[in-house]
Simulated assay, not measured.
Amino acid sequence: MSRVRRSSDWGFPRWRGYGSSRDAAQVRLCDRHGCNDPGNCPAPKSPNNPDRWYFCQKHAAEYNSGWDYFAGLDAEEAAMREAQERSDFSGFKETAHYGWTGSGDGSRSGDELRALEALGLDPDADFDAVKKAWRSRAKEVHPDVRPGDAEAAKAFQIYQVAYEVLRAAEDRREWKG
């Protein structure tokens, strides 16, 4: 009779050899010639084709920048396909107002982003650039410079409110920091 031998690890992995029970993980490389990064971003080879390229994130972004989903279709087919796509996924349109509507890194509120846009600045502009832009724009449309001009007065008010929003936000950041 053969005697059954009990395992000595009692279910605790720390008593086993490290990685002894694991096989090598299969990693698919990027399909771009010469790239050795993992290819974990699938990209279609052509419309209506199940075949996919597998790129790294950098090459997937490069590929997608030149991708035209409607390539090879005439205007009528493209319009029909677009209408079909929109009808199938129309439920997602309801949630569009929850997303960010502008660019930014998330450190600025929507009001701040709109104020920066009103002053013609990038979302990552610092407060010195805000002051400079506000002064130059406000000088152009100030009521003392353009008396009786309703459009200039409205533009001046917009610049003034934008500056106040950004100044209050800067004060809050300084107070917290």
Rank of each mutant, 00 (worst) to 15 (best):
C35N: 02
C35Q: 11
D37C: 02
D37F: 05
D37P: 00
P38W: 01
G39M: 00
G39C: 02
N40Q: 11
N40H: 06
C41H: 04
C41M: 06
P42W: 01
A43D: 05
P44L: 13
P44M: 05
P44E: 10
K45N: 00
K45E: 07
K45R: 14
S46K: 09
P47I: 08
P47S: 09
P47V: 09
N48D: 15
N48I: 05
N48V: 11
N49G: 06
N49H: 12
D51H: 09
D51L: 13
D51Y: 09
R52I: 03
R52K: 13
R52Q: 14
W53E: 10
Y54W: 12
Y54Q: 14
Y54M: 07
Y54S: 14
F55N: 02
F55E: 01
F55Y: 14
C56T: 03
C56P: 02
C56Y: 07
Q57V: 04
Q57F: 03
K58S: 07
H59T: 01
H59W: 02
H59M: 02
A60V: 04
A60P: 00
A60F: 03
A60Q: 13
A61K: 14
E62D: 10
Y63M: 04
Y63L: 03
N64Y: 10
S65Y: 05
S65L: 08
G66V: 06
W67P: 03
W67N: 03
W67T: 08
D68T: 04
Y69T: 11
Y69M: 06
Y69R: 05
Y69C: 04
F70Q: 06
F70A: 10
A71D: 14
G72P: 09
L73Y: 07
L73A: 12
L73V: 04
L73N: 05
D74R: 02
D74H: 03
A75N: 11
E76Q: 11
E76I: 12
E76N: 10
E77N: 10
E77V: 01
E77C: 01
E77I: 01
E77R: 13
A78I: 14
A78N: 02
A78H: 07
A78R: 11
A78E: 12
A79C: 03
M80I: 10
M80Q: 15
M80W: 06
R81H: 11
R81Y: 09
R81E: 15
R81M: 12
E82M: 08
E82N: 04
A83N: 07
A83H: 10
A83L: 08
Q84P: 00
Q84N: 07
Q84H: 12
Q84D: 09
Q84E: 13
E85G: 00
E85K: 09
E85Y: 15
R86Q: 15
R86G: 08
R86S: 13
D88K: 07
F89R: 07
F89V: 03
F89D: 13
F89G: 10
S90L: 06
G91K: 09
G91H: 13
F92P: 04
F92H: 09
K93M: 04
K93Y: 13
K93I: 09
K93P: 00
K93H: 11
E94K: 10
E94N: 12
E94P: 01
T95Y: 13
T95W: 07
A96I: 11
A96W: 03
A96M: 08
H97I: 01
H97F: 12
